[in-house]
């Protein structure tokens, strides 16, 4: 998978928030096999220096986010700060439209994406499965789209699989990453079987009873789902069809 000119082998992107400890976070990153981790910018508090060392030691590519921003202006300012601080043009662009659903504000998202793409950012927009919004984001310069599976942190999986299927068909050659709402490895595998290029998740690993083992499970599920997609799934049928040949069957009196 090629994202803004960078080859990424692992199809699992992992968030770094809400883990029981920094040590478990570091182990989970390693166990997942991820190459891309998301981070945020917040007011400097205790543990900042240790976290900087941890993300540097992970060897992963950093995808800073604009999480929590509710206006295009806030997201643009946050993105500019992130580019200086992390030394990367990559930005996961989140512009939240509603505090309860955490669904993207499509209008502010597009406004911010236009500004940031023009400034040379590699924008990873957290969006919905809306095809027209997706087209406008691509026109603005986005080379990847990140439709939600379900509301952030909800663990509901793919709420609208048919809509996501349409999105995959509508953008056949564009990298599409399912971002948010994934709660179980089976849901991540389904996203990959539908042909999505990668999955970004956080809470499902961080809040598992054993985050390190869950990180490994997600890495395996994403890998299996991708292989299944490439292998070509059998067509679904409404009726049964025997798998054992009828020809040559014995006739018992």
């Amino acid at each position: 998978m090629r994202l803004y000119g960078i080859d990424i082998a692992s199809r699992l992107f992992l968030g770094t928030a809400q883990y029981p400890s920094p040590a478990i976070l570091a182990e989970a990153i390693a166990a997942s096999g991820t190459e891309v981790i998301t981070v945020s910018l917040r007011r400097e508090g205790a543990g900042g220096a240790a976290f900087r060392e941890l993300i540097a030691a992970s060897g992963c590519r950093i995808l800073p986010n604009t999480a929590g921003c509710h206006t295009a202006r806030d997201a643009i300012t946050t993105a500019r700060m992130a580019r200086e601080l992390f030394g990367t043009a990559w930005i996961k662009l989140e512009v939240i439209g509603h505090a309860d659903t955490l669904q993207p504000d499509p209008f502010a998202l597009l406004e911010a994406a236009r500004v940031l793409c023009a400034e040379g950012f590699s924008v990873f927009p957290y969006t919905t499965e809306d095809l027209i919004l997706g087209e406008k984001l691509v026109e603005a310069g986005c080379e990847v789209l990140m439709p939600w599976g379900a509301p952030i942190g909800s663990g509901q999986g793919l709420r609208n699989p048919e809509g996501l299927r349409s999105m995959r068909a509508h953008f056949p050659d564009l990298p599409l990453v399912i971002d948010a709402g994934i709660g179980a490895p089976s849901q991540a595998a389904l996203a990959m079987e539908l042909g999505f290029d990668a999955v970004l998740l956080n809470t499902a690993v961080a809040k598992a009873t054993d985050p390190v083992a869950m990180a490994r499970a997600f890495g395996q599920a994403v890998g299996a789902g991708r292989v299944a997609r490439e292998a070509g799934l059998m067509p679904r049928r409404d009726m049964a069809q025997p798998s054992t040949p009828i020809f040559g069957m014995a006739e018992f009196p």
Binding site: A17, V39, L41, R43, E44, F51, A67, T78, L85, N202
Partner: peptide
């Protein structure tokens, strides 16, 4: 003035 640093995020 806002002074921001790298933090955990999803």
């Amino acid at each position: 003035v806002e002074v921001l640093a790298p933090m955990q995020g999803g």
